[in-house]
């Protein structure tokens, strides 16, 4: 695996206005830490950091370049990056120092290859996790882990234990969780009139779902606003 380079400088922690001033100059505050390393506040160029982050999938290890001798030449990975809620601008980065001869645990993204049999039958490929944790030497971190989904039919599941990983890379997991599945085909929404009739026959369907619950594609639910509106009123105490 290739390594990148990142120029950095030490920065003051107080007063906080120095951090605002740094950001105004296009620099990003960051912190460098690791096992046996005292946390050191640093700053990096925003443009350079963005370039490193966009290449982070294939260049995981970054070598720091600095005028300060105690941080120059250290190898780090991006442990965490804080971003602005709307603009996505990087606000702060955590750089974790790694020993190139010691195995570390990192998350590696999964890449689903091939066209699943179930997708050809109209199903939807549903990745249940997008990355898995692996343990390996820093220079052997794979860019992605390929998961072949070609033989996956509707309702079939690939578990993490079945994921083949090349090289000296060990997946870390407690439970053998599912990685990807194929959902059955969704039914096209029926015309509103037909759905309204169906809703009237059954009575208004129960409303309310968890915040992140999948949106029901059932047309009956969509076509019962009058009944639902009554349900929507909070219960009287």
């Amino acid at each position: 695996m290739e390594t990148g380079e990142l120029n950095c400088e030490k920065r003051a922690v107080r007063p906080k206005s120095t951090i605002t001033a740094l950001r105004r100059q296009g620099r990003v505050p960051a912190v460098l830490y690791g096992p046996g390393t005292q946390p050191t506040p640093i700053s990096v160029s925003g443009a350079e950091l963005n370039g490193r982050l966009s290449a982070a999938s294939h260049v995981r290890i970054v070598r720091l370049k600095s005028a300060a001798a105690d941080i120059d030449g250290r190898h780090v990975i991006f442990k965490e990056v804080q971003r602005a809620p709307v603009s996505g601008e990087v606000l702060h980065a955590d750089l974790y120092e790694v020993d190139l001869n010691r195995a570390i645990q990192v998350e590696v993204p999964l890449r689903f290859t091939g066209r699943a049999k179930g997708v050809a039958d109209g199903g939807i490929l549903q990745p249940l996790v997008r990355a898995i944790t692996v343990e390996c030497l820093p220079m052997e971190i794979p860019e992605t882990i390929d998961v072949d989904v070609t033989g996956l039919g509707v309702h079939d599941v690939i578990h993490v234990s079945a994921v083949k990983i090349a090289g000296n890379v060990k997946p870390i997991f407690d439970q053998d969780f599912a990685v990807v599945s194929v959902l059955p085909p969704t039914v096209a929404e029926a015309p509103v009139a037909a759905a309204a009739e169906a809703a009237a026959a059954e009575g208004a369907p129960a409303e309310g779902a968890a915040a992140a619950a999948p949106a029901a594609e059932g047309a009956a639910k969509e076509a019962a606003p009058a009944g639902a509106a009554k349900k929507a009123e909070p219960a009287k105490k």
């Binding site: 109209g122 939807i124 549903q126 959902l183 085909p185 969704t186 039914v187 096209a188 929404e189 779902a209 968890a210 915040a211 992140a212 619950a213 999948p214 949106a215 594609e217 969509e222 606003p225 929507a232 909070p234």
Partner: peptide
């Protein structure tokens, strides 16, 4: 909630069949 429902209907109607939609907010304030 009516606006969210209208948006959901617009989404699901456009994608017709196939695809999956999640609503990440919940109208819980009367």
């Amino acid at each position: 909630a009516r606006a969210l429902e209208a948006a959901r209907v617009a989404l699901t109607r456009h994608i017709k069949r196939g695809g999956r939609v999640w609503i990440r907010v919940f109208p819980d304030k009367p």
